[in-house]
Design a protein around this nucleic acid. Structure first.
Length: 423
DNA sequence: TCTGGGGTCCTAGGACCC
DNA sequence: TCTGGGGTCCTAGGACCC
């Protein structure tokens, strides 16, 4: 039998915000989405006073005021760096591991050669807290889906000490399935849980005992795999060598709607540049790209429009100039006057490892000019993103994100380094 | 007034081929 | 009046994840 562990950081973004700001330790903390729109992470105290996931900031102003809630704009430079530290530590303790998201990691605990796995997990949990300052919970199960489920219960149970092991306590599996609502099962989202509830399937236990043919018909092979995993049959293996990305995207909602083409263009140039940088960092090139712009779907009074266009590159590229140029041509092609644009984005598609992209028929050698891009990346890495850019930025930047409560980049910017003072 | 961004996988349907 | 069956490739859309 396989043994998977899921290590999940507790309230990750809120925990990161607290790391370098001890004065937040005793206050409820929430972290906001881009443009400071809605709540995407909450500390335990913030959950306790009833702040919901996804709550728009304007709706919780009163609660914030009343309880002295610390409100933070999201700071992904900080979270990404802290995440790396946690993952490195986990990886050094369990060589077979899969970094699943910014705050989650699956471990393969087979062949680890430890006498008491639950004990080992509790140690790992303490070590992670001591070394990184981030509290984690650990769920252990015979499949990834059951490890996830165990993790969720570990987070909720005080007496579990942050660890629940369903592999060495198989008698816990059935009660665990019974007390997990169907919508909290990994792989069952909002649509499916509504559909299942309407048919009386309200818990993980109900779903695990539903009929295969019916599940297959209603939810395809994806849903069937989830059901099998709940029964203890492995359908999702540990993926410790993740495949390179096939697409990458840089998109944003604007701080304010924008009607002016130059400003939309300016935003797209910035996205194109950033997307190209991501692809260079992965040592890939893009074979095609897509640009989209759209109005605000939440505003019922505004005329709605969603436009997009794409191109293929003759020579797959990661050069910001080529990508920005293509984005400009696409925008010129799709642009329509008279709409209040709210969001735009650049997608780079058909990504391939740099150097392996096939040459086009008439090429002797692929064109190569990496010097300038390398220099830009080096400067931006050293002095902070945006230190050097293509000379395209316009003056009006209404599309820029609102980030009114941004914490310092404690670990990724020299200027933001925390200072300790002897008293 | 206000409502994120970045991904993956699967399926259905159309175009096209033999 | 009759108009197959099976395959591939591509795209759009829908489900999910964090």
């Amino acid at each position: 039998m396989a043994t998977f562990a899921l290590v999940d950081c507790n309230n990750f973004y809120a925990s990161c915000e607290r790391l370098f700001r001890p004065n937040l330790k005793t206050r409820p903390v929430v972290v906001l989405s881009n443009n400071d729109g809605c709540v995407i992470a909450r500390s335990q105290e913030a959950k306790a006073i009833g702040i919901g996931m996804g709550a728009p900031l304007f709706k919780i102003r009163d609660v914030v005021e009343e309880h002295g809630v610390a409100v933070c704009s999201s700071n992904y430079a900080l979270y990404g760096d802290i995440s790396e530290r946690v993952m490195t530590l986990l990886g050094s303790n369990a060589p077979n591991h899969e970094v699943y998201s910014i705050d989650e990691c699956f471990l393969d605990l087979d062949n680890l050669g430890v006498p008491d796995l639950s004990d080992w997990c509790r140690n790992l949990r303490q070590k992670t807290y001591k070394w990184t300052g981030i509290p984690v919970s650990i769920g252990v199960g015979p499949t990834k889906t059951l490890a996830k489920l165990a993790n969720r219960l570990a987070k909720r149970s005080i007496k579990s000490g942050g660890v629940i092991d369903l592999v060495h306590h198989p008698e816990w599996i059935e009660p665990a399935l019974r007390k997990t609502p169907i919508g909290d099962v990994w792989g069952v989202g909002r649509r499916w849980s509504q559909m299942l509830e309407e048919r009386g399937i309200t818990t993980a236990h109900d779903f695990a005992h539903a009929e295969d043919g019916w599940i297959r018909k209603k939810m395809g092979v994806v849903g069937l795999r989830t059901a099998h995993e709940l029964r203890g049959y492995v359908c999702h293996a540990l993926d410790d060598q993740p495949q390179p990305k096939q697409t990458t995207c840089c998109s944003r909602s604007f701080g304010e709607t924008v009607r002016d083409k130059d400003q939309v263009h300016d935003a797209l140039m910035s996205f194109a540049e950033r997307a190209a940088e991501k692809v260079r960092r992965a040592d890939q090139v893009a074979g095609a790209m897509q640009v989209f712009i759209r109005t605000d779907p939440f505003n019922p009074n505004a005329a709605q429009k969603s436009l997009s266009g794409s191109v293929s590159f003759d020579h797959p590229t990661n050069d910001a100039r080529a990508i920005a140029g293509a984005a400009t041509r696409i925008l010129n092609r799709i642009w329509r006057e008279g709409f209040a644009w709210k969001k735009a984005g650049v997608l780079l598609l058909d990504l391939a490892a740099n150097g392996t992209a096939p040459l086009s028929l008439f090429d002797a050698v692929a064109p190569k000019d990496d010097g300038l891009m390398n220099a830009m990346d080096t400067i931006n890495q050293r002095y902070g993103r945006g230190s050097i850019r293509l000379g395209l930025a316009g003056k009006d930047q209404n599309w820029r994100m609102r980030r009114e409560n941004l914490s310092p980049s404690f670990t990724t910017k020299w200027a933001d380094l925390a200072c300790a003072r002897m008293v």
